[in-house]
Amino acid sequence: MPPLPDAQPRPEPTLAMNFERTPTLARTVSLSLLLAATWLVWSGLYKPLLLALGAFSCAITIMLIRRMRFFDEETYPLHFSWRLVRFWLWLGKEIWSSSIEVARVVLHPNLPISPRTITIESPSRHNFDQVMLGNSITLTPGTLTLDVYDGKLKVHTLTDEGAKALLSGEMASKVTTLRRSS
């Protein structure tokens, strides 16, 4: 990926941050449990050798991730909540309806496309909002995020109606409510 301008400069590590070890520890433990559960579910075999190998690879993964400073920055803002499930259901409905629209366009003998490139404002400069909004737009057929810069998203749409629906800003407001829950 091309180096995008950083929306948020990385905060300087201060003394106060170094002492805040509790969330890091909690994240380490929860991620270890997740990795261990994945290993157990995946193999389905519970011999001592395989279990030892699993513990070994979980430990190495955790070590590498800690070295990458994954836990120190805000890369884990998404806590499971019912709001997330509701957002996914809403997104599924959107994917369904726009897929029907794209299928209608594809199967129409005249191929009635009206492609446009529009620019929409991201609700905030927060990385999470921009990524979530961009990926949701790309995941919905008929709209495609081309570029994200300066808190703006450049979006290519297959039809004029798709562009209008996106400019109404419904998806952006849904994404904004998502982060407030955490």
């Binding site: 897929s99 794209v102 299928a103 995941l139 919905t140 057929p141 709209t143 495609l144």
Partner: peptide, 10 residues
């Protein structure tokens, strides 16, 4: 890419 994204998401 719009057409391909139908086969990639739905």
């Amino acid at each position: 890419m719009h057409a391909a994204s139908v086969t990639d998401s739905l």
